[in-house]
Write a protein that binds this DNA or RNA. Structure first.
Length: 132
DNA sequence: ATTCTAACA
DNA sequence: TGTTAGTA
């Protein structure tokens, strides 16, 4: 596990995230209050966002102008976590002959796709009607 | 120069 | 959500 730590490493300050996501600092901090993201803090309380946080913010923006509210987005993220765990469990129980290295490679790709865009399109449509 | 928290003519 | 005030 080397690629994972890179994506979750706290790197950029809110100013950079603002440009990367085209979101206002106010919005970025607000989504944090709502529990959608959890950036690290420096010794002096300044926020540091990871690659994953930025990716998350971009997803939030998409879901938002698709008509979902904070509650709906929370459910989608929670559901993504369940899906990731389910995928991992499935692979492990189905192919016990895989070496750790092979298993890791499979999981890394599966998790990346599931966490990104695509696997959520189904539930996305459902939640859209109840939380907009 | 930047970011942070809190608050609202 | 924007914006502004007073800091760190």
């Amino acid at each position: 596990m080397a690629d994972l730590s890179r994506q979750s490493k706290p790197l950029f300050p809110i100013g950079v995230v603002q440009e990367l996501t085209a979101l206002s600092a106010r919005q970025i901090r607000y989504y944090e209050e709502q529990g959608l993201i959890k950036p690290e803090r420096t010794e002096t309380k300044r926020r540091l966002y990871s690659f994953n946080d930025v990716d998350r913010l971009l997803s939030i923006k998409e879901y938002l102008d698709q008509g979902l509210n904070i509650a709906g987005i929370k459910m989608i993220f929670d559901n993504d976590l369940v899906k990731r765990e389910r995928v991992a469990e499935t692979v492990v129980t189905t192919r016990p002959e895989l070496s750790d290295g092979e298993l890791y490679k499979l999981l890394k790709n599966e998790l990346k796709e599931a966490g990104r865009h695509g696997k959520t399109s189904l539930i996305q449509g459902e939640l859209g009607r109840f939380f907009k």
